[in-house]
């Protein structure tokens, strides 16, 4: 049961991108297109699950003083595995994500979960946490990509690896190239965060109001 709770929190309530605002660099580069977002998200999830698994399993053997180098070696190993497999089997995605795949090593989501969670918790919980955080990151970048991709390129779901040409939403002429850049990514993130905060604060207010009403009636 607790494992499920650890899994669920990362998806939304403690979403690394929307709630903790960490790992911004990979979020910005991978949310330019939905296909990139899925690729980067799943790559990061893979690394996150396995690094959490190994760090949690080895946590009693890793001395406190050298824990960070150990984390980095474990993380770097899985990142290199992802990088090589991606270069071999998904070359177009690899070309787009380019330097950002090796940079998953320093994606602070992964080190943060290793340090804050896996090093202190059991294997099952850690896997659940890694999976939840990874999928939370994936979900967040997909949401950003769904907004950014059509505005920046005029079409959505363009995925060359799978021979998918994408669905045209607006003429290419109107596509705003700036949204493709990190600037546009941060602007999009800002609007998404504002919308999330607006909706949650409104529903909280409504809840408080109905609670107050109920209290009066009693």
């Amino acid at each position: 049961m607790s494992a499920f709770k650890e899994f669920k929190k990362g998806l939304w309530a403690e979403s690394p991108t929307f709630a903790m605002l960490i790992g911004m660099c990979p979020a910005m580069i991978s949310s330019t297109a939905v296909s990139n977002a899925v690729g980067m998200g799943l790559a990061a999830t893979f690394v996150l699950v396995f690094s959490n698994l190994f760090i949690s399993a080895l946590r009693n053997m890793i001395p406190d003083k050298i824990r960070i180098p150990c984390f980095i070696v474990v993380i770097a190993t899985f990142v290199t595995i992802v990088d090589l497999s991606m270069a071999a089997y998904l070359p177009d995605l690899h070309r787009i994500l380019g330097v950002f795949v090796p940079l998953i090593v320093v994606n602070c989501i992964i080190l943060a979960r290793a340090e804050a969670f896996a090093y202190k918790n059991g294997v099952v919980d850690s896997i659940a946490d890694g999976l939840g955080m990874g999928l939370g990151f994936t979900l967040a970048v997909i949401i950003l990509a769904i907004i950014r991709e059509p505005i920046a390129t005029g079409k959505i779901l363009y995925a060359k690896d799978f021979g998918f040409e994408g669905i045209k939403l607006i003429p290419a002429k109107f596509a705003a190239a700036l949204v493709d850049k990190p600037v546009g990514g941060f602007m999009t993130l800002g609007f998404v965060l504002a919308s999330i905060n607006g909706i949650t604060s409104r529903s909280k207010k409504a809840k408080q109001a109905s609670a107050a009403c109920a209290a009066k009636e009693v």
Binding site: L58, M61, P63, K65, I66, P69, V73, A76, T77, I81
Partner: peptide, 15 residues
């Protein structure tokens, strides 16, 4: 510490 790091690195290197 050195031994632990070495072991981890060797496993990582082999994989």
């Amino acid at each position: 510490y050195g031994a632990i790091l070495t072991v981890i690195c060797v496993i990582s290197g082999v994989s």
